[in-house]
């Protein structure tokens, strides 16, 4: 297995605002290797989520470079960034953000339909398999309003895994869940780093969290203060 970083952030700064400028992320260097489970912690407004959006190519750094699978991305066109996101990154948000008119299965199929790599039957089989692996086999045809908070978040994880991405990025994935559901979601994310992505590489999970219990179970804990990395501690490996 190659140990080349899946994500490599080099001296990234993100400033927003025209007249009144606000620095969200300042001079961050961070490399995420395959098999790592990284927790990004920090106080509210410290820039954790902003860093995650930069890692996920949802935002473009003002200066610096974000490499995804070794590929520089700051100069990529929007469509190319969308394609890279679709193929290599999976997102889980605090609020599940499932499409309300679609069933759990249809939500999971969404990224696969966009990627158009599998036949309809193959997509459905994979979607059901993912839902089953997350304990949702009996809920495939329910719309999000018929699912509990924990079930919705597991559907969101299944959707993030649909295209078998190399990196899962999660923004407060347990922030809205009760303890039992949080444990379940955390366990699922924790187990993902032991699996391989579609390209045979090891997989990495990066989680932004306030949850100290979640952070304690990560391989690596990156603490952000005022947009800068204050500490970067490897607890395992």
């Amino acid at each position: 297995m190659s140990d080349a970083p899946l994500l490599d952030v080099q001296n990234v700064t993100r400033v927003i605002g025209d007249e009144v400028k606000t620095t969200l992320v300042a001079g961050v260097d961070l490399a995420v290797a395959p098999g790592e489970f990284v927790a990004i912690t920090g106080p509210s407004g410290s820039g954790k989520s902003s860093l995650l959006y930069l890692l996920g190519l949802l935002d473009v750094p003002t200066t610096g470079e974000v490499h995804v699978l070794g590929r520089p991305t700051s100069k990529l066109a929007e469509d190319a960034r969308a394609d890279l996101r679709l193929a290599t990154l999976g997102f889980v948000f605090q609020f599940h953000f499932l499409l309300p008119e679609f069933t759990a299965l249809e939500n999971v199929l969404l990224p696969m339909r966009a990627a158009r790599k599998l036949s309809e039957a193959q997509m459905k089989a994979r979607g059901r398999e993912l839902l089953a692996s997350l304990g949702l086999a009996d809920h495939a045809h329910k719309t999000p309003d018929k699912l509990s908070g924990g079930q919705r978040q597991r559907v969101a994880i299944a959707r993030a895994l649909a295209n078998d991405p190399s990196v899962i990025l999660a923004d407060e994935p347990t922030g809205n869940l009760d303890t039992a559901s949080s444990d379940q979601v955390l366990g699922i994310l924790r187990d993902l780093v032991a699996t391989k992505a579609a390209d045979g590489r090891g997989r990495a999970v990066v989680v932004v969290t306030h949850d100290l219990d979640l952070a304690a179970r990560a391989d690596r804990r990156v603490h952000i203060v005022d947009g800068r990395i204050a500490t970067d501690v490897r607890t395992k490996g």
Binding site: G56, E78, A82, L86, F91, A114
Partner: peptide
């Protein structure tokens, strides 16, 4: 959400 999943603007 769709765009964050990787759907193009077009």
């Amino acid at each position: 959400i769709m765009k964050s999943l990787g759907l193009r603007a077009s």
